[in-house]
Each structure stands twice: as structure tokens, then as C-alpha cells.
Design a protein around this nucleic acid. Sequence first.
RNA 1: GCCCGGGUGGUGGAACUGGUAGACACAAGGGACUUAAAAUCCCUUGGAACUUGUUUCCGUGCGGGUUCGAUUCCCGCCCCGGGCACCA
Length: 829
Amino acid sequence: MDYKPESVEKKWQRLWEEQNLFRTEEDKTKEKYYLLEMFPYPSGRIHMGHVRNYTIGDVVARYKRMKGFNVLHPMGWDAFGLPAENAAIASGVPPKKWTYENIDYMRSQLKRMGFSYDWEREFATCDPEYYKWEQLFFIKMFEKGLVYRDRCFVNWCDRCKTVLANEQVEGGLCWRCGSQVILKEYDQWFFKITAYAQELLDDIDKLSGGWPERVLSMQRNWIGRSTGTLVKFKLEDVPGEIEVFTTRPDTLYGATFMSLAPEHPLVKTLVKGTDRETEVLDFVEDTLMEDRFTRTSDQYEKKGVFTGRYCINPVTGAKMPIYVANFVLYDYGTGAVMAVPAHDQRDFEFAKKYGLPIIVVIEPRGEHLDPLTMEQAYEDDGILVNSGPFNGLENRDAMAKITSRLEEMGMGSSTVNFRIRDWGISRQRYWGAPIPMVYCERCGVQPVRVEDLPILLPEGVEITGKGVSPLQDMEDFINTTCPKCGGPARRETDTMDTFVESSWYFIRYCSPHTNDRPFDEDKVRYWMPVDQYIGGIEHAILHLLYARFFTKVLRDLGYVEIDEPFGRLLTQGMVIKDGAKMSKSKGNVVDPADMINTYGADATRLFCLFAAPPEKDMDWSDQGIEGSYRFLGRLWRLVDELKDRLKGLEVEPGSKTGKLELEGIKKKTHQTIKKVTEDIDKRFRFNTAIASMMELVNELYKVKDTIPDKREELAVIKEAIENLVIMLSPFVPHIADELWHMLGHKGMLLEHPWPEYDAGWAEKTTITLAVQVNGKLRATLKVAKDILEEDATHMALSEQNVKRFVNNNKVVRVIYVPNRIINIITATR
RNA sequence: GCCCGGGUGGUGGAACUGGUAGACACAAGGGACUUAAAAUCCCUUGGAACUUGUUUCCGUGCGGGUUCGAUUCCCGCCCCGGGCACCA
């Protein structure tokens, strides 16, 4: 009987489903293990990236279950998002219909891969029973001051008439129509992630070890904490002041002018009614017309314009002209920068260009700097000069001293500044969770009543892709009453960023159908946190940071008791083909459906695991999957040929009667169990685990035609083959269950315990000792394990090739590393 | 510029904590089976040299160093990938 993957796989998928094999319940007698892979966007069909991600997860889930853990392994759909609207624009299919049809198809594809999901926990984030709770969280956050509305600059595409997320701006152009993206002021809802910046940063240390360092460093970077000083500069002649953030308070005496971001609100007030008003406002407008991408590139020409106003340096009393400068960012620090041209390269260039004074306040020890001859700013450490009472100090010491001086004067304080900005979650889109707020003429902005949730997304909306959110045309949706005064009010028409849904779905999986509250606390307490999370590196910052933030918010709202959602994180590499990421335009896309049809789900899974370790990019190879398929055929034939001789045979425990001809196989079996267990458990190195099982198969092929017809010898083979099949089952579950039955067993291997190795058999009794003379390999010795040094030395020295290289020279030293190497050092080299 | 990864045969990749570099697989070549092909099974396969061996020399991006011994540790470079970046 030949290996026919399709019939084997469909048979077992049916049986697993009939027996509810993958269903999980809380069981306090067992240790829990929550394994989660990032849920997919239902784009239409699964791609190789999904297959790889979910295969890795499935191996771990099945392995842990066989190890006796109570495993939670859920799956669902990140179902809101723009592609559904694009499909509606292109083909007129309503987003809801399009999304749920895609989900149905993709679910069938995942089932066809044999993944062990508890499908009873499935949900889609576009289900009202899901986003209802998100709307509740929004209201709770609003009440706690963690949500606010603010006018801010957003990416705006004037052709599409819509706001774009940062990730939808590609090289300064709209990803959809290719036109220039501009900055536009817009009212947006924000989540106050900055309130958690310090905790998000601090807790990164807790994740160290469980998360890849790379991801942690990216998050640290993104949060971007820097310590410095807030300094106030009084305006000349008029009341008011400008605040700046600086990391270099030691250079304060060298601050000779002030630079404001074009967006800075003070700009307009400063120039109002002056003769410079037109020039300055024109400059501001010109700068704002340029897109963010150009403005933040370092090739960008530094330009500025004088406002005609001055402020006062708090320590020197000097008049500092106030400029508007195009390179000053409004959303970092205070949007204003004290310019120290002698010690900051940008300020230096700016000062040279506009003829502004340069004052040196730090000099390298024993050197003198002359502002007239300097060719660039001096940004390194040194000794303070021209700094009044602080002259002669090391600049590092001066930082704190000058800050204290400012504090005494009431003109500044030491502070911490973060690069991370609050999370703007408003999207002018239809296919998302409605923001549960209303605008009342009398009461202003009000959250809807909790008992009115969910605020359902209306159906039957015409989606044209033009203009703002289609919800703005839905009178039935917009017109409502104020929850406070009962008067007429209008609903918010923006929907939430889809990253909000993915920030808490992993908690909902613990009790996906609880409908009187967001979560069942007991179940959440049992399952959370996720023990192992698996997904692509592309989410290193956004999703993983948002989810961490949201978990902390839910903790502070009293819903969960944990600080961090994901104990361990594995970021799997991309699947590439011919050295490039798979894409339609390159024509190098491999459709998993074709692979399943040709080679079966098991061979596809096996190749995904074997071709590379999980965290590395994996090169898809058509010959490679052929090889995996061949291996399964080889395994099949091995079992098929021997099954009748092995069936019903009792394996005698510790059959130590006499000498076994097949002792080598028995040793190899236990060594393989040890290797595979450690590779999965300690390192997630599935490629080497599979390689070692291939080695065992190769060993069995060497002996299979000459197996003596003795019970003890057959028992060795039986033990080898059965353990092999058991161990292969997390990787290739269908063929494993089938082979298990062919060997005369009943039941499913997922319910079979993972094998234990016998340490005695797994241990090597004879080892190969490398013999070096003066550090070069000259021979190898097959010797008993733990051979004594003197015996090893004696044997080594009697080797012909060793003698040749020792060549009657005096042996001055012997380095012996038991069971590894013996190195003989001679007098002359 | 700063911060993380990474660089090993024709290819994907192995090598635990410094101890025989190249496991396993792909590709290639040879053989067996077959009328033939496919499939299958077996063998060879880092490079070079010769005295063809339990042989020697070279070889893990480059140059140094530490060590009896370095793919592994240290210093200095080069290249590739990713993140952050006029961040004050």
C-alpha cells in the first residue's frame, strides 16, 4: 500500500473533529499552557507565511499537550480593516459579506492543514459581541482620562480626501493613489499611551530572556526616553515665555538664538500685526505643505525665518532672536529648541547661514576653540568656559549644577522626555469599530450609555472610496440623543484603528462567549498570560507595544491581574522565494493550496519546519518539499514492510537478556528521543529535531532486511519505530496517526504521552576521541567512555600517525578533555 | 550617526559551555532494479596535492590577538539585513 496523503489526511481530520480532540477546558489539576499565534487578517486565502507561523505553533501545542499540559490553542480573525472596503469599492461586495466569506474559506484551509485549534473559541473582531467590549473599554478609559480628543496634524491625502495612517504613507506618497501626502489639522481621538511610557520601558527588563533582544531594543528605541532639562526663556518686551527641552543644559551659556517649529502656536501670536507677519506665515505654510517624509530626511535643507522678536537667556540675560526653523519638530519635546551653534551641528550650520552669534562654552581639556575659525560644532565632552560661575567644571558635572541653578531661579527643572507619542486611533473609515461617543450641542462630547452598547456598525452603506467616512452620510446612524440631557446629538463617525482589536483578543480567547461582561475573571486568571506567542517580526513595535499597553490599561481598570500579556515571544522569519519576498509583482508566489494538493499537508508542514530554524527567513524550494515528501514515503514503506512482524509483539521492559545484535539501534532510539525532546523543549529547533529522526530512519533502513527473527531483536525495532512515529506526530500528525494504527494501536497520538528516554541507553558507552599533536588532528580513537587519561595517552601515543608527528620529541604536556579530545604537546614545534 | 541581528561547501542549513567544521537535506555524479523510463534502494560528494593514506596542506567575510586548541572569546575593519534618526 502506497502513501496517499490526501486520503490519510482527510480521514484523520474527520476523526479528530468527530471526537472534539482539540477542545480545551480549564482544569486546575493540570498545568496550563497558553500557546498563541498572531491571528490572521481574512484577506481571502492563507499564504505561506501563515502556514509557517501556524505550523510552528501547532508543533509546540501538540508537543506540550503530549507532555501533559492543559493547552489553550485558539484561532480567530483580525477582521476589520481597509481591504474589505477596497473590495467593496472594486466589486461592490459589502465588507461584511466579503469578510465572512473569506473567513469561511480560510477556516477550511486551516482545517485542511490539520492545526489543533479549539474552534469553539473562534471569533472575528468584527462580531458585535466582540467589539461591544472594546467600546466599553473606550468609555472606561475616557472616564479615567486615558482617552482624549485633540486637534493635531495628520497625514492627509487630498485626492482621496482621507486621513492616512503613518504606515499607509509610502515615501511621502499616498499608498492608494500615489499623490503627495500633506499634513493637515484634524480632530482625533487619542489613547494616552504616554502615561504608560515609563512602565512600558521598565517592564521590558521583565521580558528579557523570553523575547528576542532585537524586539526589545526596537521597543526601547521607539519609546525613546531621554533625560534633560526644561528651560524657560522669557519673551522680550511682551509677557510670556518659551519652554524648551534640552539634553545639554551644560551648553546653556552658549545659547544665542531660539528656533521654533513652524507648527508652534506661539509663531502666529509673535508676528501678529508686525511687518514680518506675511513673510513668516508664508514660510510656515510652505513648510507645512511639504510632506513629513521630506521634512525629516537629513538631506533636507535647513531654513528659517526671523520673527522679529527676542527672548532672554535666563542665565546670561542675552537677547536671543527667535526664528522659525523648518527642521524643528513640533511633536518632540516642546516644539522649541534653544540653539547652541558652537555645540550643535545643526545650529552651527543655521548660525553660519543667517549670521548669528556663536559662543564657545565647552572646550576640550588643554585646547582652545575659536568661533571664528571653527568649521563644525564641538559636540563632545570638555571643560566649561564663558559660563560665569560654572567655568572650569567638567561639562558632565555642569549639567546637574546648571539645572539646579535654574530650579532655584524658577526658570527650569530636570525632566524626562519620551519620543513615543499618544496613539491616535481615529480612522475616517467604515469597516471598523464605531467610537462610542456623541456630540451634543448643549453638553459637548459625551460617551454613550454603557447599556446602549454595542453601537452597531450600520449595514447597507455605499462605499465609494471618495470623501470622508461613509458613515457621515448615514443619517439614521448619526442622529441620536444625548445620553446626558436627552437633546439632539450626533454620533462620532470615525471608527477605531484596527490595532485596538488586536490589543486584547488574546484575553477574550479565555472566555470567548461570555456575554454579560468582557471576560470571565476565573478563566482569565487560569489562562493568562500567554505562555508562548508566535508571529512575524513586522509587528515588533506596533502590535506588540499596543498589546502591552492595553493589558496594563485593562489591569488598571480591574479586568486582569497581569502586567504583561506575553511571557515568551518567538518571531518567525519570512518565507522567501528565489531570494526575494513572495509578491504578485515578482511572480514568485507559492500558494499553499497547491502544495497541499500535490504533496499533502504533512509534507508541507514538514518542509516549513525542516528548511530553516523558525526565527530565520526561510527560502522556499520546490525540490525541498519534494525531499520532505520523499522522507514521508520512506517512513511509510518502513512501517508498512515491518508492521506485520511487529504487531502484537510485547516489548519486554529492560530486555537485558544476553547481547543484542541491534544494540546500536536501541541506543540510537534513546539518543533520538533525548535529542528531539531537547530540541523542541529548550530551543525550538525543529530542523535539527527532524534531522535526527531522519538519521534514525536511515539507521533502520540499514538493518531492516537483516533483522533476526528473535523476539528481543524485533522488540528493539518495534521500540524504535513506535517512538519515531510518536515523536513525529506533532510535526506530521496525519501520517503519524495512520502509521500508529497500521502498527496495531488505537486512539490518537495527541493523547499519547511523549516518550521518555532511558538515560543508560541514551548514553554513549564508546566514544570517538580526537587525538591532536600540537593542536592538529592526527588520529581518532574509538574508546570506552570515561577512559582514564593515562590509558588514553598510552593508546594515542601508540598510533602510527601520532608517532610520526611526535617524532621522538619530548612530550612536555598532555591536555585531556574526557570524551572529547587529547592533545599532545611536544618540546620542539 | 546610534542600536540590534547576520556572514560556514554548488544550495538550505549543523556544530551543547572554546575541543574531530560541514550532521540532516537539496542539487550533482555513479551503481543496482527495469526491455526502457519513472519510482525505489545503495554509494560518492569542501578545495588542493601526492607517495591514494588511519596521508598532507588549505578552509567558517578580512587583518590581528588570547589559548595546547577559536566558526565560538577579545581588538580593528569590510559586507548584508533590520530598527531609530535634523529627537534638541
